[in-house]
Design a protein around this nucleic acid. Sequence first.
DNA 1: ATAGAAACATACATGAATGTTTGTAAATAG
DNA 2: CTATTTACAAACATTCATGTATGTTTCTAT
Lengths: 244, 244
Amino acid sequence: MRRTKAEAEETREAILEAAERIFLENGVNQSTLMQIAECAGVTRGAIYFHFKDKADIYKSIVDRIRFPQEDLIEQAQSGEQVDPLDLLLEAGISCLQTFVEDERQQRVFTIIHQRCEYVGELSEVLDRLREVNTRVHQLFVRLLQTCKRRKMLSPDWTPEDAARALIASMSGLLNEWVRTDKAFDLVDVGTKSTRALIASFRRNADISIAACGTSPDALLSAGMHAKTKEVTNHGRKARAKLES
Amino acid sequence: MRRTKAEAEETREAILEAAERIFLENGVNQSTLMQIAECAGVTRGAIYFHFKDKADIYKSIVDRIRFPQEDLIEQAQSGEQVDPLDLLLEAGISCLQTFVEDERQQRVFTIIHQRCEYVGELSEVLDRLREVNTRVHQLFVRLLQTCKRRKMLSPDWTPEDAARALIASMSGLLNEWVRTDKAFDLVDVGTKSTRALIASFRRNADISIAACGTSPDALLSAGMHAKTKEVTNHGRKARAKLES
DNA sequence: ATAGAAACATACATGAATGTTTGTAAATAG
DNA sequence: CTATTTACAAACATTCATGTATGTTTCTAT
């Protein structure tokens, strides 16, 4: 019953696919290798040939997806010359956009946040998540520090706190969206929330009256007048530019 | 070895206390009744006397704490005559405040959100959480609808979306705070974030320049000039009024 | 062509957690 | 005062997931 190398890779993928389904249904710890094998149409032996144990399967699942935050990092590192706050807004929005479109990302996100107790071997997965998160945080802090140097950051916010707030807002939105079973328009609500937050980051924008003297260009670049559609398209264009 | 009724209640509490610790360390499903018994200084027999099974213990733990959202509901229902948006801001802030002060709330929150796979019996706990959340959401929607009737709500936001955004922001803040092991000042960052969000809810406040003509009173009531300390004290006062 | 190894299936051994049953000492009701 | 029930402890039986060991077939390299 030996298969060719390509077929073997197929069964490996089938196992990962099955594990994703079973994990989502039963939780990582409660899922048994037997269930996964059954769902994949193989025996437990096949699983033990391809993977060391259940934790290994889970790590493989998490490793093969791209996190929404990683898209965000790549995108945010592209244009350093533009307004960092605009860049944050666009990156955040297109991050939400890709998340909405990628069902696998959503499934794995749900597993990670609602279907796993991180203990023992499993906590290694958490370590990777933490690492990605700190990278995002540091990136945000760097961007916000340049804002501060350019006197564009509101005195209310430190770069660190602003970064925390942004990350909390984004992760809160993603979590609520999956928890409520997509009960609202993630991109729409997320765009408005993020825009509100970033608006408060701007010097002289946190207190409404102080913005009167600024030029129309400054207001436009603040993204306050742009309609949702235009902004998301803008974000998409930026991403398309990256992929080329 | 029969104990008096009061002593029995003590051991019951000891079991719950121990379970809280063990669940936090090992996750609900990974924790064994033996570990809990050992930690509580009893045998498994005692646990099976007081509780049906592990799910029963977990439900008891969740039932005996007050959720941050429940504080929020009570508080937000007190004064209907004031500006609903101010009320939302104050309620949110004092909700964060009590969460920071209540270590048990934090522990159980961590268990709920990071140490449990909700499957089978355990999902009943999730049902209760969902119910609390929908109550909060409906309350928010009601408040925001009165805003809309009074022409105080920005045309950018529907009451539903604004409620979602607020809930997502709050839960995101709480989650990030416990996930990062209290790496930032929750009340401080939370106050600024929430204030920014609610500011964007206000009609003529979402676009900075439009607020120029409004009276100083309107700006003050928008909470944009108040320092953090004053607002939190305000929130506390409101809570103290409730307890009397 | 054939030796070896790859890609599994099957069978077994182990341990660990659960639920249940039985035992028992002390409190409490009558 | 004693009869019964309470509040556990201790022992037992059962299930069940895991890991490993072994078997089998087919690919593949030489």
